[in-house]
Every structure is written in structure tokens, then in C-alpha cells.
């Protein structure tokens, strides 16, 4: 854990293979949450939907091409 305090195993929580105390986990969560802006949320959602839409088109294209080969 980042604060290097001694804790028993029951009081520590493992995250990504590293043991953290409750205070360190709260700090870590707060620091990470603060960085996500509205624009990054919108960008991620829009890009995901666009890629899924393109995936449907590519699925039809690949399927029709493969069906034509056999």
C-alpha cells in the first residue's frame, strides 16, 4: 500500500494484485475519478457506437464475400 502503514490482512483490500488500506483506496479512487471529463465520456460512447455500426457493415460485407466463395 502507498501509505506503508502496517495492517492486518482483514483490513486490507487487494486491487490489481496490490494490497491497499481503505484510505489509500479512497485517495486512488478520488484521483482517478477526477480526471474523467464530460468530453472523454462523450467521445468514448460515440466512438464505441460508430465502431459497432461499422462492425455491422463489415459483418455483412465479409459474410457476403465468404458466401460467394463457397
Amino acid at each position: 500500500m502507498s501509505c506503508t502503514k502496517m495492517l492486518c490482512q482483514q483490513c486490507a483490500t487487494q486491487w490489481d494484485g496490490i494490497w491497499h488500506c481503505a484510505a489509500c483506496l479512497a485517495t486512488k479512487r478520488g484521483a482517478r475519478a477526477g480526471r474523467s471529463g464530460v468530453f472523454s465520456w462523450i467521445a468514448v460512447v460515440l466512438v464505441s457506437l460508430f465502431i459497432l455500426y461499422c462492425g455491422a457493415r463489415v459483418m455483412v460485407w465479409t459474410g457476403a464475400l465468404l458466401a460467394g466463395m463457397f
Binding site: 464505441s48 459497432l52 461499422c54 465479409t62
Partner: peptide
């Protein structure tokens, strides 16, 4: 979940594109 939808949609897109 949102991050997973992004990575999974890229994987699905790449999977169909690279099917050949």
C-alpha cells in the same frame, strides 16, 4: 463498462475484418 464496450467493439470490428 463504457471502457469495455469500446475495447470489445474494436475487437469485434477487427475480428470481422480479419476473418479471412
Amino acid at each position: 463498462f463504457v471502457s469495455y464496450v469500446l475495447t470489445a467493439s474494436v475487437a469485434i470490428f477487427a475480428g470481422y475484418l480479419a476473418l479471412f
